[in-house]
Design a protein around this nucleic acid. Structure first.
Lengths: 214, 214
DNA sequence: CCGAAAAGTGGACTGTAGTCCGCTTACAAG
DNA sequence: CTTGTAAGCGGACTACAGTCCACTTTTCGG
């Protein structure tokens, strides 16, 4: 459960941009580094916002100005690695298309990588998902949104290609397939039920296979 | 989203039993009633533990002695109605068996009822699931456990009856089918995505159908 | 009926998330 | 360089969850 933490935060999320003051930009770096250090040292769950602010030698208000909660902070920390994951997947899917693999085969491949990625970053994912599903309407969670769109896109392609039955509710099925990958649920499956990553992947793929046209 | 609240709490969960002092038993009733009233008046999410204690004219310590958190309290409130649901389902499944319906048909029926029940009690379910998946190992969540066992049992029967492919990982599939019914996820599907209960039921059943032997 | 032990009670206390707002600083226009 | 002002900053403050423990009440054996 070693979080992948980017070495360079210069491109990490936030309200960065040309309009950001230099002191603020410095503080964002400082805060991200402080959080990354603490998360690595004692684990994501054991760190609270005040700790992070103190470690960065910054007031709590300053921390909250950049990151409204641990979820947003985790999101920013993962940003670089997530972009990388995203690019790798896009490239792989292109390759698979070039090799003539069907949308459903591509989706299998993607699901496998996705389970692995979410598992590898489980602690941060839990924080991110906590916010995403907290109930308050919140600015779209980019990773979640992209995953959703990718799966949905591949399912639609598969349907159009005749691999999937036409009467299926692609939108709902996308949501349902993603539900077992929610942070807290994935943690329960991994640590309480004891399912390993391969088993989870295989299970999801078997659900997917069931949707094939006979 | 009107929670079903039992009229008589005399059998409601807690550490009740012959060993419970009379004053304590009275307070449990008082607390359950106070909580039910407040939940109904302003909604489960808007009520906090101190409010409940105050409404019952009882100290916070007294409340926490009975119910460690809002989840346990919600669980106790739902207890009566859940027992009823459970009995109805058991009876229906018996009837369906008598009529010669297959395990998979029974499971479809059960899933439909389950989605309806969880949706009807969504606010309380969210509180219950929050504790269930909070990370700390916690005394088994009875409703969750029973649902899990029922689905698993029917899947195993279906498999034995030759309705389901033999290589399927029944345990994982049970968990995966239940994941979209987790409180927070169900709320997101209902309120953010806008799926209605029928659509969710249909989606889950289509996943189930996919597992059939060809 | 009495007294001791067990069970129950209330509310002060601690810890954490997140907000608020008066003060400070960067920076751009003149 | 000066200065207005929007952005940034810090830490006190509020709200809530959950714990602790000195005090009270019930219960039960003798």
């Amino acid at each position: 459960m070693e979080p992948i933490i980017p070495l360079d935060f210069s491109t990490a999320a936030g309200q960065e941009g040309p309009g950001e003051r230099r002191d603020a930009a410095e503080n964002r770096q400082l805060l991200l580094r402080a959080a990354a250090d603490l998360f690595d040292q004692v684990g994501v769950a054991a760190v609270n916002m005040a700790d992070i602010a103190k470690r960065a030698n910054v007031g709590k208000g300053t921390l909250y100005r950049r990151f409204a909660n641990k979820g947003e902070l985790s999101h920013a920390l993962l940003d670089e690695s997530f972009r990388q994951f995203q690019n790798q997947q896009l490239a792989s899917l292109r390759d698979l298309t070039a090799e003539g693999r069907s949308p459903l085969e591509q989706l299998e491949y993607f699901l496998e990588k996705l389970v692995a990625y979410r598992d590898r970053n489980l602690d941060l994912m839990i924080e991110i998902d906590r916010i995403t599903f907290s109930g308050k309407i919140v600015n779209v969670n980019i990773p979640h949104f992209w995953e959703q769109m990718t799966i949905r896109g591949l399912l639609l392609q598969a349907q159009k290609a005749g691999e999937l039955r036409t009467e299926l509710d692609i939108d709902y099925l996308t949501s349902a397939l993603l539900a077992p990958l929610d942070g807290r649920i994935l943690r329960a499956h991994r640590l309480v039920k004891g399912y390993d990553v391969a088993r989870i992947t295989a299970g999801l793929i078997s659900l997917l296979q069931g949707l094939r046209t006979p």
